[in-house]
């Protein structure tokens, strides 16, 4: 889970915004469950636009587990069963994979101090309270605040974030970046040491290694949470900074990673 910027509601067409409002009013007027209304909505063109807009905002990944989800389900951050008034609220919807959405079910709600019980990656930095080990296993960060610890533990349990495919995915993503980093360092060093005759081959090798590094660090790819944590390790950060002159676009890409840290105010 990494911080997620929700697209502005204005990204939706006026028709879809109107459809959401009409549905919300219908639920409010009936004063009953939002479930049938939502079910009918999922068959409308407005739903598809809403889904595709939210999916594009999350790079077509699940907002929670970061698995690839080109056609995600829409998760209600506060469940539509307990919060029918939020069933059609833009701020309450996140794209989610079928596994996370079904694991979460009707879990949600608020803690004793009024904060949402589960972590919402579009409203806070999940990395502040979750930590991944090198095998991709996620656990609550060791924070002094008991309630923050409980929220993290609840989120992991509610979404079943210790699934094997997620552990593997996080681990592979980090390993790929490591591999690309080592290769790029070697290629850059080889080019510096190359004789004029070897230069064309060494240049070609560096071009390939650069591309592999930029791909491995692409924010749009799945399972970035462990990788993000790893990029902050002083040694890794120093190595990447040292490579920046040899790899055009790398510093711009690292700025985008850094922007994740300030995307949401700290809770």
């Amino acid at each position: 889970m990494i911080p997620l910027r929700r697209p502005p509601a204005a990204a939706l067409s006026p028709e879809t915004i109107a459809a959401l409002e009409a549905r919300a009013q219908a639920v409010a007027a009936a004063g009953t469950s939002a479930v049938p209304e939502w079910k009918a909505f999922t068959r409308s063109p407005a739903y598809r636009e809403l889904r595709d807009t939210l999916a594009a905002g999350a790079h077509h990944k699940c907002a929670y587990c970061e698995s690839r989800a080109p056609k995600p389900q829409l998760d209600h951050v506060q469940p539509k069963l307990t919060h029918p008034e939020l069933a059609f609220a833009w701020d309450n919807l996140l794209p989610a994979c079928a596994d996370c959405n079904s694991a979460k079910g009707t879990q949600g709600g608020h803690g004793p101090d009024g904060t949402p019980r589960l972590i919402d990656p579009s409203a806070e930095d999940p990395g502040a309270s979750l930590v991944w080990d090198t095998r991709g296993f996620v656990s609550p960060r060791d924070l002094p605040d008991d309630q923050a610890h409980a929220r993290a533990a609840d989120t992991i349990a509610a979404l079943d974030l210790i699934r094997q495919d997620l552990r593997d995915g996080q681990r592979i993503a980090r390993n790929e970046a490591l591999y690309a980093l080592v290769e790029a360092e070697a290629a850059a060093a080889a080019l510096r040491a190359a004789t004029p005759a070897d230069r064309p081959a060494a240049e070609h090798a560096l071009v390939k290694a650069r591309a592999a590094l930029l791909t491995a660090l692409d924010l749009a790819r799945p399972h970035r949470a462990l990788l993000r944590q790893w990029l902050r390790a002083p040694l890794v950060a120093a190595k990447l900074a040292a490579l920046s002159p040899d790899v055009p676009l790398l510093s711009a890409l690292l700025d985008r990673w850094a922007a994740l840290d300030t995307m949401h105010p700290t809770r």
Binding site: T134, L231, R232, V236
Partner: peptide, 19 residues
């Protein structure tokens, strides 16, 4: 391949994993 990568990682990241 992944196992080999991780062995190299141990060498590279002797200073912690960024926690």
């Amino acid at each position: 391949r992944q196992e080999q990568l991780e062995a190299e990682l141990e060498a590279l990241l002797r200073h912690g994993d960024g926690r």
